[in-house]
């Protein structure tokens, strides 16, 4: 295993302001340790891709300072580019080249030539499962195949720091899981530092060692997924009433157990339980509802999620923020958001 010294990322007061626009990134600070997988979570237009583009030297910074693998992105760009690999938000391929030609071209530009380039291409094609399609022009690849090739291109020169900008958007669940495993392997076995942006809660939760949540260009929360969720503490209980009359009675009945929360099911009522209050529990709520004669069709308990953290910090849900951001996105070239995977912590109990 290679040493991972100097593989980290340090960002201080990073700002990006586009002409005649608001600050897309507004003074963020972050540190990513060598070999760490850092999940950068936020809705479309939050500033994720702008941050990545600055860190990979594709976009000049307006103010602040950032170092990647020990090199200053503003003044030592060529060194930064040698140390990093990047799969940006939109796959960047030449439709007239085959997968193998792509890999050999990028390898050659990186100074890896001849047999070494061919061997490297073989290894990467196998790793991303494109051996059979290696000699087909990428114009005929599916979206998932293109994204896998894009990742392989980012790995050609064995980078020490890997930037993945929404790498699983458009991938089927199987490809998504395979990519997660590959990212984990890179971090664990090869000591690669991974900076991963995503708008999928599950992705950040499952994959990232630490998560930074960005909204409107500002980091609103940072920590391990467990730490962030611990800030919320108590779970949320959601009740689906049997009728409008029952719905009208529920808020008053539930107020003693916690604070009102945003429900997932339209027409239902949700309450985030008070922390450290023994009376605030699912059992107590079911008893109270039953005693009051309120009829409910379903009761769900949600463990705290990163979306709850986002809600706590911004007053918005990630999904809602994404919709707002789509209207007024300031990042260049934002893609349409795809439906996020279902919340894996939703737990129907009745």
């Amino acid at each position: 295993m290679a040493s991972s010294e100097n593989n980290g990322i340090e960002v201080r007061g990073l700002v990006k302001q586009f002409k005649k626009g608001p600050k897309a990134v507004d003074g963020i600070d972050l540190d990513v340790a060598p070999g760490e997988i850092y999940g950068f979570l936020g809705p479309n237009g939050a500033g994720k891709s702008t941050t990545v583009n600055m860190l990979v030297t594709l976009l000049p910074i307006t103010a602040g300072r950032a170092t990647v693998a020990g090199w200053d992105v503003a003044t030592q760009g060529s060194h930064v580019r040698t140390a990093i690999g990047a799969a940006l938000q939109a796959v960047a391929l030449d439709k007239f080249l085959t997968g193998r030609e792509h890999l050999k071209l990028i390898a050659s530009l990186q100074g890896i030539t001849g047999d070494r380039a061919s061997r490297r291409a073989e290894v990467l094609l196998e790793r991303v499962g494109l051996e059979d399609a290696a000699d087909r022009k990428v114009g005929g690849y599916s979206g998932g195949m293109q994204r896998r090739l894009d990742l392989a291109l980012a790995l050609v020169h064995e980078p020490r720091v890997l930037f993945l900008d929404e790498p699983t958007t458009g991938l089927d669940p199987q490809s998504r899981t395979a990519l997660w495993e590959e990212v984990r392997r890179l971090a664990t076995d090869e000591g690669v530092t991974v900076f991963l942006t995503t708008q999928y809660l599950e992705e950040a939760d499952v994959l990232a060692d630490r998560v930074g949540i960005i909204n409107a260009g500002t980091i609103v929360a940072e920590g391990t997924p467990a730490e962030l969720k611990a800030e919320i503490g108590a779970p949320t209980v959601e009740l689906v009433p049997a009728s409008d009359a029952d719905r009208a009675r529920l808020p008053g009945l539930l107020a003693q157990f916690g604070t009102e929360a945003a429900p997932e099911v339209p027409g239902s009522v949700a309450v985030r339980l008070h922390r450290g209050d023994d009376r605030a529990s699912l059992v107590s709520i079911v008893r109270a509802v039953d005693d009051a004669g309120v009829a409910v069709r379903e009761v769900r308990q949600h463990e705290p999620t990163l979306d709850d953290v986002f809600l706590l910090k911004t007053g918005l849900t990630l999904e809602g923020a994404a919709s707002d951001a789509d209207v007024a996105a300031s990042e260049p070239g934002p893609r349409s958001p795809e439906p996020a995977p279902a919340d894996p912590t939703a737990e129907p109990v009745a």
């Binding site: 007061g13 990186q110 980078p159 000591g191």
Partner: peptide, 24 residues
Amino acid sequence: MTTSTTSTAAPPTTGIINPHATGT
């Protein structure tokens, strides 16, 4: 706004996984 507090970046001298990535 946070201002820069990091020291000047030192060139990495160890841990280079990609010794071939010197370009052509």
